[in-house]
């Protein structure tokens, strides 16, 4: 679907692909008014990515480890507590191997043709319905916008959240919540530092009032709750 893409050294070239994910309804880039819904766009991982295979293999390992260390209380009758995990462990390893094979195959195709194969090709038993309903030509329109994944922002958001978790109980909701809102807004590209800080403080305080005082939910007071 996308046009031929030049080869770029040993690393496979990342061509843009517009495939619908389940609800990735975020817009991409500037678009003409005649285009089909922009929500169908998703950033393209490099062809034949092993990341999902690694994730599933990790889950399979966890299942295996859990089974080996399982201190099972046997059932009085019928299959015991290890029965179902064994089934899913086998399935997990099969899927992990399948994903690796799939990734290798896609990588080969990509290297052979210099273009990324469509993920919803004829081999798969039917892609997401939205993917098939887009008009042809959109992929080309978007090729110039395939800047790839902004890992810096992802790490910043994740780190902001991790710090929020760490300081929530010692510092209390208002300070931690302010940090989370401010940090996330900054990581997502907001540039008005002071205004953002005010908005963040306001939101954290409103939440404290509405949920802590109003609904009686338990929010940590932290250092501000000395009284």
């Amino acid at each position: 679907m996308s046009g031929p893409v030049p080869e770029g050294g040993s690393h496979p070239v990342r061509a843009d692909d517009v495939t619908a994910t389940d609800a990735a309804a975020t817009s991409t880039g500037r678009t003409g008014v005649d285009e089909p819904p922009r929500a169908l766009a998703a950033p393209a991982p490099s062809p034949g990515s092993f990341a999902m295979a690694a994730v599933v293999a990790g889950f399979a390992l966890y299942l295996t480890h859990g089974l080996l260390t399982l201190d099972a209380v046997e059932a009085e009758e019928g299959p015991g507590p290890a029965f179902f995990p064994t089934l899913i462990m086998v399935l997990a390893w099969v899927v992990a191997v399948g994903l690796v094979i799939d990734a290798i195959r896609q990588r080969r195709t990509a290297a052979g043709h210099g273009a990324r194969p469509s993920t919803s090709g004829p081999a798969s038993p039917g892609g997401t319905t939205g993917a098939q309903l887009r008009a042809p030509g959109t992929a080309e329109d978007r090729t110039d916008e395939s800047a790839g994944t902004d890992w810096r922002s992802v790490v910043l958001v994740a780190a902001t959240f991790a710090i929020f978790i760490a300081v929530l109980e010692p510092l209390g909701w208002i300070l931690a919540g302010t940090w989370l809102f401010w940090g996330a807004a900054q990581s997502l590209g907001s540039r008005r530092r002071l205004l953002d800080l005010g908005v963040a403080l306001a939101i954290a305080s409103i939440v404290q009032l509405a949920f802590g005082a109003g609904l009686g939910l338990n929010l940590p007071a932290g250092v501000l709750g000395a009284s």
Partner: peptide, 17 residues
């Protein structure tokens, strides 16, 4: 949270609506 991280990964893709 997955959606927030996904949106973060696509900064610069979001154009004027």
């Amino acid at each position: 949270l997955g959606e927030v991280l996904f949106v973060a990964s696509r900064r610069g893709h979001v154009g004027g609506d």
